[in-house]
Amino acid sequence: MIKLIACDLDGTIIRQDNTLSIENEMAIKLLEKKKITFLPCTGRCYQDMRSAFPQSLIYPSVLMNGALFAAANGSSIYHFPIKKDIVLDIVNYFQCIKLSTAIYSLNTIYMIGKISNFTKCLVECGMSEDFAKEYYGCNIIEINSIGEIQEDILKIEIMIANTKVKNTCQKFLSKCEDVNVSSSLPYNIEITAKGIHKAAMLRKVAKFYGIKKEEILVFGDSMNDYELFENYPNTVAPKNADEAIIKLSKFQCETCENNGFSSFVRNYFKM
């Protein structure tokens, strides 16, 4: 029997305009009535995750690709930082090739480089300018060096419009043994500590709630969900998900824009 739904956000349940449809909102509320825990499982930080949900839906969540398991109010239950010397090496490399770099701490996103450069890259990758400016759903602090950050660093993110430059960055990161590298968009790279991804944190969450992996239903659509689909038996992918995710999925559903989550859970749980 399913007791928990671990659900990716962007492209799975949250639409391109950063909203949750009424149909999906109602489906989540119906799950509550069935005593099934809904767990957002995303690469976003807490503030950015909250920007997509109405105030009536507030839950603990797996954030920053598994680097943080946060309580409903955003405070840390578990978190796993990247080693500071590793962060410094990676950021120095990105600075050398003039890439603006987003640095995620527990409560803040810092930008080394110009936020405007980051936004410009998003527009070049096909986002509207207005949406690109609101990409993070929260305030970002521009800084000049990593030394200005005193908190634990949980995730690093870069946006790259140029495929050749992205491939060069991936080659560099493949030599960094103490990090996990993933992607949630065709043009981004996301970095967490070694062994830290959504599936690793979900194992700790399952233990926290006292449930088995067979009692978890996973929804996801992109490569930062790959380990979830590799390690959990009950998985659902929208039909427009990355091909690798579809191949691993047990079930498929309609796209996010067509309320695939709502349709699937209503049918699966007979709601």
Rank of each mutant, 00 (worst) to 15 (best):
I2D: 03
I5N: 00
A6L: 04
C7Y: 06
C7R: 07
L9T: 02
L9K: 03
I14S: 05
R15Y: 13
D17R: 09
L20W: 02
E23F: 13
L30W: 06
L31I: 10
K33S: 04
T37E: 13
F38A: 10
T42R: 02
Y46K: 01
Q47L: 04
M49Q: 09
I58S: 11
M64S: 07
N65R: 09
N65T: 10
L68R: 11
A70W: 06
I82T: 10
K83H: 09
K83P: 03
D85K: 08
F94H: 04
Q95S: 01
S100I: 03
T101A: 02
S105K: 08
T108K: 15
I112N: 06
G113K: 04
K114Q: 14
N117A: 03
T119H: 15
C121L: 08
V123R: 02
E124C: 07
S128Y: 02
A132G: 09
K133M: 10
E134T: 07
C138P: 02
N139H: 04
N139K: 05
I143M: 02
I143Y: 00
N144H: 11
S145K: 14
I149D: 01
I153G: 06
K155V: 07
I158N: 04
I158Q: 03
A161W: 00
A161T: 00
N162R: 03
N162C: 08
T163H: 00
F172N: 11
S174W: 04
K175V: 01
E177D: 15
D178W: 04
S182W: 00
S184D: 00
S184I: 01
S184E: 01
L185V: 01
P186G: 12
N188T: 15
I189S: 01
E190K: 11
K198E: 00
K204G: 03
K204N: 13
K204M: 10
V205S: 04
V205P: 07
K207D: 15
Y209A: 07
F219I: 06
S222H: 13
D225I: 05
E227G: 12
N231H: 15
Y232A: 06
A237S: 14
K239N: 15
N240I: 05
E243R: 13
E243G: 10
K250M: 04
Q252K: 13
C253V: 07
N258E: 12
G260E: 11
N267K: 15
Y268G: 11
Y268S: 14
F269M: 10
